[in-house]
């Protein structure tokens, strides 16, 4: 697998990370090297093998439906870059 400049642009866009023009070359080279390592997986026969998504084979624990959280808005919003009237502010959201 070898990445094209467009691939990097597309990925950076999906991941919402600006990649500056002067970084793009280096990012691409390193991604190529990493996929050189990863691509070894393609040759392994995994027919009939169940994927393993979790380190332990456990069942989902369930919570009782009770309200336990208190209002901690002031504490949490003390960390926020921009708030007004209890709302987190962001540049205008277009639909």
């Amino acid at each position: 697998m070898s990445f094209s400049p467009d691939d990097v642009t597309r990925l950076a866009r999906l991941a919402r990370i600006d990649v500056a023009d002067d970084e793009a070359r280096d990012v691409r080279d390193k991604l190529d090297a990493i996929f050189g390592l990863i691509d070894a997986l393609q040759s392994i026969d995994t027919a009939g093998i169940e994927p393993m998504a979790h380190a332990q084979d456990v069942m989902m624990p369930l919570r009782d439906d009770v309200v336990t959280a208190e209002n901690r808005r002031e504490l949490y919003q003390a960390q926020a870059p921009a708030v007004a009237d209890g709302l987190y502010l962001v540049p205008k959201v277009l639909e």
Binding site: Y88, P91, L94
Partner: peptide, 19 residues
């Protein structure tokens, strides 16, 4: 950059703020 942590100082719109 919405609820906590670093937020860029300069951006023109939401997508640019994220990126």
């Amino acid at each position: 950059g919405v609820r906590y942590g670093h937020r860029a100082a300069q951006y023109r719109d939401l997508t640019e703020m994220y990126c």
